[in-house]
C-alpha cells in the first residue's frame, strides 16, 4: 500500500499532468508545479476521492506544498477514521 505522500504525488501528477517522480515534498503546487486556481480545486476534489474524505475547502486550499498536503490529508484521515497506514 502506498504512503499518503505517494498517493498525494500520484494524484498531483495525474491532475497537473506531471511525472510523479519529478514531484518533491517541498514543491509548491502553484509556484513549482504550476497549478492554477481551477486546478487547485480539482486537486482538492481528487484528493477527497482518493482518500474517501471530506475536506474543509478554505483549509485545504490554503495548503501550499505537496508535503504539507500529505500531512494535512493524513490528519483529516485520522479525524475521519480513514485508515492510511502502510502495512
Amino acid at each position: 500500500m502506498a504512503t499518503v505522500e505517494e498517493r498525494v504525488k500520484a494524484v498531483t501528477a495525474r491532475v497537473l499532468k506531471l511525472d510523479p517522480d519529478e514531484i518533491k515534498p517541498e514543491d509548491s503546487f502553484t509556484a513549482d508545479l504550476g497549478a492554477e486556481s481551477v486546478q487547485s480545486i480539482e486537486l482538492v476534489a481528487m484528493f477527497e476521492e482518493e482518500f474517501g474524505i471530506e475536506m474543509e475547502e478554505d483549509a485545504a486550499l490554503s495548503v501550499e506544498t505537496v508535503g504539507k498536503a500529505a500531512e494535512f490529508i493524513a490528519q483529516v484521515c485520522k479525524e475521519q477514521g480513514v485508515v492510511t497506514d502502510v502495512s
Partner: peptide, 13 residues
C-alpha cells in the same frame, strides 16, 4: 468549473 460542478472555494468564499 471546467464543465463540472465542484465545491470550489466553498460557500464562505
Amino acid at each position: 468549473i471546467e464543465g463540472v460542478v465542484t465545491k470550489g472555494f466553498g460557500k464562505g468564499k
